[in-house]
Design a protein around this nucleic acid. Structure first.
Lengths: 193, 193
DNA sequence: GACTTTCTCGGACAATTGTCCTAATCACGA
DNA sequence: TCGTGATTAGGACAATTGTCCGAGAAAGTC
């Protein structure tokens, strides 16, 4: 097996396990078992657990950016793109009800640990924030307003994710998503005036 | 020192440390150091770490209920009481920006651990949910609607807390709190019609 | 086929974890 | 003052943690 493959597999497994079990509660042994390599083999690819975390965060940043680029490339308008964002709550509903939002829960955990990579994880929020702000700007909102709306929507989806994993009630998630879509429509019409 | 005092001190220290560092990242040694008792002394008061967690959750349930009862006892109307709830985000702003919401972060962590006490921790949400729903009902909303509004407000405050600890931006928190108050006012007037 | 670099294995390491036991200390009534 | 039960201290325990080493297998080059 090529080294790059092994490395990629480690990052992939760590990404998944950090999400499902949390960073601290995931051990080298857990990742090794998932990838089916020996625990000692880690040292060749990653010297410390923090290095794995950094690699995971970097991969998430890349994947998220790619997803946002895809949405941007689609022909639809900014409002439809924002709807794609809101719909993540539906698309990933079962995982979110089990483990919460991957971005929110990781930053929360790292904040409590006082971990140096917390800023990096928070960068995932920035990606969404600026992408959403650009969409709102395209809808006709001025910069400061667009950023405010972006943060507002980000916060609401975070709240839905947190409560979804506590309540495990699909109807709640669907209801809140619908309300967010209505809210989005209101932001649209307020610009057409 | 009386045994009940020691026990209360352990629960108090554990409560604080579970919030600031997370349940898993807090060790017996950490709590013992905080309370200044020997590590071995724990076994007399609590047989397992899970027992401490249960005691912490029980205390939080009692404290929360007491806080809600206090708000209820105050002479103001339901809208003012709901405002008290929203204002927690301001009152506890610095702690929330550092460690997030104690309820949301604990339930998230326990969900990832697959911990049996997750349901107990989620009970904290139920306390707020039903209290808020009662306030909305007093404002004239019918039961199903009141519950929906309660969950909506709960989710929004959760989202603000999560994003607050990631961004650490007081202006964002204050802006969102103001928007929630405006939203609350709209719910009020919609009932007066 | 020989050689060198890249990669992997199994195990060792000190530290820390939650758990548990025993002996000593305390408070307090008889 | 003695004795009894409640409380505490200190340390032992097996298991697990992240980290690291050295021997060897695999892969690629000449």
């Amino acid at each position: 097996m090529a080294a790059t493959d092994t490395r990629a597999q480690i990052v992939e497994a760590a990404d998944q396990l950090f999400y499902e079990r949390g960073f601290e509660h995931t051990s080298f042994a857990d990742i090794a078992a998932q990838v089916q390599i020996s625990r000692g083999n880690f040292y060749y690819h990653f010297r410390t657990k923090d290095e794995i975390l950094d690699a995971v965060i970097r991969q998430r940043l890349e994947n998220t950016q790619a997803m946002l680029d895809d949405w941007e490339a689609e022909g639809a308008g900014p409002a439809e793109r924002i709807t794609s964002f809101i719909q993540i709550l539906i698309v990933n509903q079962s995982k979110i009800m089990a483990f919460g939002c991957p971005v929110g829960t990781l930053t929360s955990e790292l904040a409590k640990l006082g971990h140096p990579s917390q800023a990096g994880a928070a960068g995932l929020f920035s990606l969404f924030r600026h992408w959403l702000a650009r969409q709102f700007a395209l809808m006709g909102h001025e910069a400061a307003d667009a950023d405010r709306l972006a943060l507002h929507l980000l916060a609401r989806s975070q709240g839905v994710a947190t409560l979804a994993s506590a309540l495990r009630d699909p109807a709640f998630v669907e209801g809140e998503v619908q309300e967010m879509c209505s809210w989005l429509a209101a932001q649209t019409s307020s610009c057409l005036q």
